[in-house]
Design a protein around this nucleic acid. Structure first.
Length: 358
DNA sequence: CATTCCCGCCATCTG
DNA sequence: CAGATGGCGGGAATG
């Protein structure tokens, strides 16, 4: 069934292709591997072996998947598989959490959770993004506390990134803006760069799950990501077949990709071939597996096409093209709002900062 | 040249 | 202390 494009390049030998090792593809493979009935737990080592990647990579996707509720840490090396069905609630929680952070004064009187996406005009306009996101910044006591490592985790970043979309009217953001917003005051070009790198990682996996989609801002040609929301089912399995229609059967389907073959960036076949150590059980979707440095003649070539690892079943990826942009004005306003909020906030803390690195 | 983002070193955090 | 985690940013692909 489906290989991706039948390798077009005749080269046939160890052709390094970055796309084959993207986090997005890995995420798709991961999902198609575990998103099925009967799965209740996921072992990191096993996952790494079966997907043919280093452990480090598994941590990356597992962290973002956990932020969305798909996985829950069980113990060292193990996670509970909650499945796609857990996503809706996770998103709701994030949403509530985001809103809760800004109207603490109102207390638990009326937890106004703007109805779905139709929050066009809420009596209480968006406050400041910093409030919604509330990423703990360096406190004066930071000098004593071991650098709050947790605060910089991919998982938290993922949550905040998502909040930016669901707790706001904006549905389109460039990673650069997102980074600036999430960084709050620490407006350091260096930090921003690193943040952006992380956001790329996150965006890639969220894209593969169709939570977001890459496009270009209508006016500015800046590449941005648009929130698509979790419309869906189609994720199959998980028993509960939702009734809602399926305007999105055309999306959300993974799989069929084979595992990420492992070769170093520089053609050289690494001596340490992770997968080989384990008894790699070829799952149905993995036509081939790496074997101790075997120059996989089976490597699937890069998508002959333009881009996007975009999942799977080729024909369905057509949904990812451009489409008429609306609300240009609204977006502009929103950005203005962001910039203002962040600016004022910046000056607000500008006095005691200067703690961080440079 | 600019953007995207993989790779894996090595600091931290468990157990 | 060994093994598990996972920041972080250099620099290689790609656009």
């Amino acid at each position: 069934m489906s290989l991706i494009s039948p390798s077009t390049s005749a080269s046939g030998s160890t052709t390094y292709c970055r796309k084959q090792k993207s986090l997005g593809l890995l995420c798709s493979n991961f999902l198609s591997l575990y998103n099925r009935e009967g799965i209740e737990t996921v072992g990191l080592d096993e996952a790494a072996a079966r997907l043919g990647v280093e452990r480090r990579r598994i941590y990356d996707i597992v962290n973002v998947l956990e932020s969305v509720g798909v996985l829950v840490r069980k113990a060292k090396n193990t996670y509970y598989w909650k499945g796609m069905g857990a996503i809706p609630k996770a998103l709701d929680d994030l949403k509530a959490e985001g809103f809760r952070n800004n109207d603490e004064q109102i207390d638990c009187k009326s937890v106004k959770v703007l109805e779905d996406d139709e929050d066009e005009r809420s009596p209480n306009p968006v406050v400041s993004v910093q409030d919604i996101v509330k990423e703990s910044i360096n406190e004066p006591s930071v000098l004593f506390k071991s650098d709050n490592r947790k605060e910089k985790s991919l998982g938290l970043l993922t949550k905040n990134f998502i909040k930016l979309f669901i707790c706001t009217k904006s549905d389109m953001l460039s990673l650069d803006d997102a980074a600036k917003i999430l960084l709050g005051e620490a407006r350091n070009p260096s930090l921003t760069r690193t943040k952006v790198r992380r956001l790329y990682d996150i965006a890639n996996v969220l894209s593969s799950m169709n939570f977001i989609e890459k496009t270009h801002h209508p006016e500015t040609r800046k590449p941005s990501f648009r929130w698509l929301g979790f419309t869906g089912q189609t994720y199959g399995q998980t028993g509960s077949a939702i009734s809602t229609v399926d305007k999105d059967l055309k999306k959300r389907a993974f799989g069929t990709e084979l595992t990420n073959i492992c070769f170093k960036r520089n053609k050289l076949v690494s001596p340490i071939d992770v997968a080989a150590e384990y008894d790699v059980k070829p799952l149905h979707l993995a036509p081939n597996q790496v074997g101790r440095s075997t120059p996989a003649s089976t490597i699937k070539s890069c998508d002959g096409d333009s881009n996007k690892v975009k999942n799977t079943h080729g024909f369905e990826s057509l949904a990812s093209t451009y489409r008429p942009q609306y609300q240009n004005q609204a977006l502009r306003d929103l950005f203005a709002h962001y910039m203002d909020a962040w600016k004022s906030w910046y000056s607000e803390v500008a006095d005691m900062d200067q703690v961080k690195v440079i």
